[in-house]
Design a binder for these strands. Structure first.
Length: 618
DNA sequence: GAGGTATAG
DNA sequence: TTTTCTATACCTC
């Protein structure tokens, strides 16, 4: 696991390097959301009220950070940078500033190339096909910090830990972790030199442990957790168990506020026979060790204790694993588009429809900007996803000005957080809850031709205001502390060529069929009945270029490009957009051909692609 | 799909 | 026991 040090503050510092030596804090509303390490040295910390921060450190530089655009962009950039080092694409972002990387394959490869006779002069290979790319390192030693600290065993064996050298030579796991530590060091240096960001890294055998171990030395550092299992006959705990045991139960990732409360109530409640009610409310620290060793503790006990509404099934097993240092969850694969996009703002008081509409306009505007940024790409061959090297591709002699959708969200959602109603008698406040209403995404917003302002106005008056009325039917009496607008439930457009290998038209066809199923149901759901019968033949004639015109060779070199010559994008795009705009007339969903990238109504896709397939065969 | 809960940074 | 502005996974209906 890798995380960028004081991320928001680092982004600001990179934009304005003169700030680097000063105490710097990033403000959202009335709090400091994060601050650099100089500010932390002076007593500032995350989520601190600005008043307090300014009192403690009057010369702190405060930067407003409610607009997350620059942080999001920096995060994306760094993520892309790190992702390029992965061979498996198992690179998962957690928030804006943390990245899990599963480096198993690259470590495996380098383990095999290791010369056991001369570990000191090893070369770490970063590319399979180019043996010159990589860096020199000493595979006989760990790089960076170790846990437990290396000094605890250096006395007995200067080059390796007791566990790493047995009768049969170095422990392979130990060796793997050493390689990982050098890779971690390399990545941190690259990130700093090429991108200007310092980071801290935690290295271990699963997500849980790599995250926890990364916290041991910060910032600008790395730590590797050495499993160091003692002999099985011994009663002593492994390093892993000792390490996890020493954490507070609530500090374990995956065990949040609610779970920690329940576990505390259970364990402390049994220990303290007096006044269980008081203890149950307690927030006093409770170590993982005390939970693990508490009487009757087992996966089943935990399932009974923790299972229930709001929690996933198998939570008992999951938590049991966590408190034993076991975490089987895979590092997620890099995704092309996010699952959802949401924009929100919080308010001191928002209690009338005029202000609400103003806010909705602002939020909707940001949302549409973001949809264009994150859900579309340049409609251009050189978009970075094409697996062919540049030279092999056709040089596009046209200017690419248009964009195409990578995914269409199916759902639009509005959520609000009403301010807890003040009951006349007491301070009775129901839990801090958000409520939401959602509707199918209005297709108008997928138009790329209209001015954003037009789409925003339509979205607000035709969708968001009605949603708001559903949430808050009363004309007054409400007071909101937060409003959020989100799009979710993405349906990816099947234009993905990037499976690493050659273009398998059959495979793409299969994928496209799956997506089509999706659109077919949608057609059934929202398309009005047709006025007259449209035959399959009609559709083919409308959207398929004549077969004999395209030479076979042309297709093989550049499928998409070749076809675009027959069906120029601008024309296809125009037609599709026209379809969007003619609301009542003949509305149809637009889609993009998986083979050539041409845009056309989704009903025409299947026939159009069959056309490609027949070309490929014959 | 719709609405909610929990967790994370 | 929540501040901010997000994002994800998974639950029930």
């Amino acid at each position: 696991m890798q995380d960028y040090d004081a991320f928001y503050a680092s982004v600001i510092e990179n934009e304005n390097p003169s700030l680097k030596s000063l105490p710097l804090a990033v403000q959202q509303k009335h709090i400091i959301v994060t601050c650099n390490y100089e500010a932390r040295r002076r007593g500032l910390h995350k989520l601190q009220p600005i008043r307090e921060a300014k009192r403690k450190c009057p010369d702190v530089v405060v930067v407003l950070g409610e607009d997350l655009t620059r942080f999001r962009n920096a995060s994306k950039d760094l993520y892309g940078f790190l992702r390029a080092f992965s061979w498996s694409d198992k690179v998962e972002r957690l928030g804006f500033d943390e990245v899990f990387m599963d480096m198993t394959t690259i470590i495996d490869y380098n383990m095999e190339l290791l010369n056991c006779k001369d570990l000191n002069h090893s070369f770490f290979h970063l590319k399979k096909n180019d043996p010159t790319v990589g860096f020199s390192y000493d595979a006989a030693v760990m790089c960076g910090n170790e846990y437990p600290a290396s000094s605890t065993y250096l006395l007995s064996s200067p080059l390796s830990t007791p566990a790493s050298v047995g009768l049969e030579g170095p422990d392979p796991l130990m060796l793997r972790l050493r390689l990982a530590s050098h890779l971690g060091q390399y990545l941190r240096h690259q990130l700093e030199e090429q991108k200007g960001y310092t980071s801290t890294v935690g290295i271990s055998i699963n997500k849980l442990l790599s995250k926890l171990i990364g916290n041991v030395h910060k910032p600008k550092a790395q730590t590797t957790l050495i499993p160091l299992y003692v002999s099985p006959s011994s009663n002593k705990d492994s390093n892993v168990t000792q390490f996890v045991d020493s954490h507070d139960i609530g500090k374990i990732p995956g065990i949040g506020y609610k779970l920690a409360q329940k576990i505390r109530a259970h364990v402390l409640g049994r220990l303290d026979i007096f006044d269980a009610g008081f203890v149950a409310e307690s927030t006093e620290p409770l170590l993982v060790r005390d939970v693990r060793l508490s009487p009757g503790m087992s996966p089943h006990t935990l399932e009974d204790l923790l299972g229930g509404p709001g929690f996933p099934r198998g939570i008992g097993q999951k938590v049991w694993g966590l408190i034993n240092g076991v975490d089987e969850t895979e590092v997620g694969r890099a995704r092309k588009v996010p699952r959802q996009i949401s924009i929100e703002d919080s308010y001191i008081r928002l209690d009338n429809i005029v202000d609400v509409k103003k806010e909705l306009l602002m939020l909707a505007d940001s949302l549409i900007r973001r949809m264009h940024l994150d859900l579309t790409e340049a409609d251009d061959d050189d978009d970075g996803r094409c697996p062919e090297p540049k030279e092999k591709r056709f040089q596009a002699d046209r200017v690419s000005v248009s964009r195409r959708w990578l995914a269409h969200p199916r759902t639009l959602r509005l959520t609000t957080r009403p301010r807890p109603p003040v009951n006349p008698d007491g301070i009775r406040t129901r839990t801090f809850n958000r409520i939401s209403r959602s509707i199918p995404m209005p297709r108008l917003v997928f138009t790329l031709k209209k001015k954003r302002e037009v789409l925003v106005d339509a979205l607000v008056s035709e969708s968001l205001i009605p949603l708001f009325r559903k949430l808050h039917p009363e004309k007054s009496g409400w007071n909101l502390s937060l409003v959020n607008v989100a799009v979710a439930n993405m349906v990816e457009t099947a234009t993905d060529y990037g499976d690493g290998g050659g273009r398998d038209i059959g495979k793409m066809f299969k994928r496209q069929e799956n997506v089509l199923k999706d659109f077919k149901t949608e057609e059934k759901d929202i398309m009005p009945p047709r006025k007259g019968p449209i035959t399959t033949r009609d559709q083919i004639d409308m959207w398929c270029p004549p077969t004999p015109e395209i030479p076979q060779k042309h297709i093989e070199i550049g499928l998409r490009h070749g076809s675009e010559e027959e069906l120029p994008h601008t024309q296809a795009s125009l037609s599709a957009d026209d379809a969007w705009e003619s609301e009542g007339e003949e509305p149809c969903l637009s889609d993009t051909c998986a083979v050539c990238g041409a845009v056309m109504p989704s009903f025409a896709i299947a026939a159009h692609e069959r056309f490609h397939l027949s070309l490929n065969k014959g």
